[in-house]
Nucleic acid binder design. Structure first.
Lengths: 257, 257
DNA sequence: GCTTGACCTTGACGCAGCGTCAACCCTCGA
DNA sequence: TCGAGGGTTGACGCTGCGTCAAGGTCAAGC
């Protein structure tokens, strides 16, 4: 007669594992001696080894039971099914590794290379880190929202940066973030922006962007939330007959008051 | 301002996941409105997407935190480490699949092919299933105990089965399992067995088997436990100067009484 | 104003397969 | 007789949430 640790040694498992198998009913509880010790026989050793053989082969414990007393065909069938699951798991891990590799090289945390390059160009124009982070967060959201259009959008953005007015605009940004709302630069900024908008409208570049309205609202809200100056600029543009920000549109000129 | 489910939708995760990230401190708890609802902004969406990007890439949540605010080098280092772990996991699964394949084809539940073939030969000799199972359990233990010697041992066993006396022996077994201890076949069995033993001793085939003594005792105990008839046969052989069963030895002939 | 259904809240269990205390009893050799 | 090294049950921990349960809230339609 064997104690639990002897049984475990023969089968090459831990004592804790044996008790676990008792708990889940995989290995029947044996007789106890007068002191309450479990007493095992050779049959238990054999069963335990068979359990471990299946478990080591990747069979979930919950299925070991059925496989142990299955016919030859059922057994083969079960094994096949489990192998299929293992294959799927391997594929999943391989996919994961690929994504990880992309993270390490090109894409930096949910951002395609084109956006990273765009942000770098802004940095080069003297835009401060705080604003860059705001842009980055926005682009992360956009990339997640419309992943298949991001490259087209970014190409357009890169092109926009060739416009001297656009460069001027970004040159103003850092200085404006913490200025007062009646700073003359605010109006200057609005002027430049309006020129750009008029040109965009003339080029027919305004309109459907593929975003859902709540998403546009979210981006707009972020801008307003970011700084009172941003809010002021929006107000100035609204007075001049523009609506929105993320998706800006020409509307009827509203009479003041 | 977003509710938790809107936030979750934008980032493509479940509400439960968001709350989980709050719990483990991965995503800071936002402000609440008057009803106690969490109110999120766009920055939260961006952070959540970055968290998911890392998590989807196989980064354990516990490490996402550090990677999110790591320098470029630390980041690359961390990613490399995680990739190493993923590689190891894939290898482990591939190993598992190989073992599973062996289970499906050759080895049947912890038994090498040679043992399975041996048991089949016993079946062909008319040995009953109950005894076959006893043998099988014993061989499972032996195979686990001395895996590198099992093939040699089995080769010997297969050879033994060519001996007509051995065939006779196995022919008797099934009928004897539930007979009384004073059945004449018991003595017949002992006689045949003794003839085989004498020949084995003459051929110098008795001795070291590579087993530890407690293991031999375990196998012997199993035999005795199996049937009173087995016990009786052991006793007869003991009277005739033999000791043991699994590892049988010639000892001084003991005077009766 | 009331109902209805969709959301929100916290709290807690469950999952796989044990590892690892804790607190206490049993056995065996010196 | 004592101490070391067994055994016993019970319970928490790990990962990353899924899934109730038992409420409070909100917007819409009657």
């Amino acid at each position: 007669m064997l104690t639990i640790s002897q049984l475990a040694r023969y089968a090459g498992v831990t004592v804790r594992a044996v008790r676990h198998y008792h708990q889940i009913g995989l290995l029947p509880e044996p007789e106890r001696n007068d002191s309450g010790y479990r007493t095992y026989n050779a049959a238990a050793v054999a069963r335990l080894i068979r359990i471990r053989t299946l478990a080591d082969a990747g069979v979930p414990l919950a299925r070991v039971q059925e496989l142990l007393d299955a016919s030859t065909e059922q057994f083969a069938e079960g094994i096949q099914e489990i192998d299929k699951e293992l294959r799927a798991e391997v594929r999943r891990l391989q996919d994961t590794r690929k994504r990880l590799a992309r993270l390490a090289t090109g894409d930096h945390l949910a951002l395609p290379q084109s956006v990273v390059a765009y942000l770098d160009r802004l940095r080069a124009l003297g835009v401060g880190e705080w604003y860059i982070e705001q842009e980055r967060d926005a682009w992360i959201m956009v990339a997640a929202q419309v992943p298949d259009q991001i490259e087209v959008v970014m190409a357009k953005k890169h092109e926009d940066l060739n416009d001297p007015d656009m460069v001027r605009l970004y040159g103003l940004i850092s200085g404006m973030l913490d200025c007062t709302v009646d700073d003359p630069r605010v109006v200057e900024f609005a002027d430049i922006l309006e020129r750009l908008l008029i040109r965009a409208v003339e080029a027919g570049e305004v309109g459907n962007d593929g975003f859902e309205e709540p998403f546009v609202d979210l981006l707009d809200a972020t801008v307003v939330e970011a700084s009172p100056v941003a809010e002021r600029i929006l107000a100035i543009l609204a007075e001049r007959g523009w609506k929105g920000w993320t998706r800006i549109e020409r509307v009827q000129k509203i009479s003041p008051g």
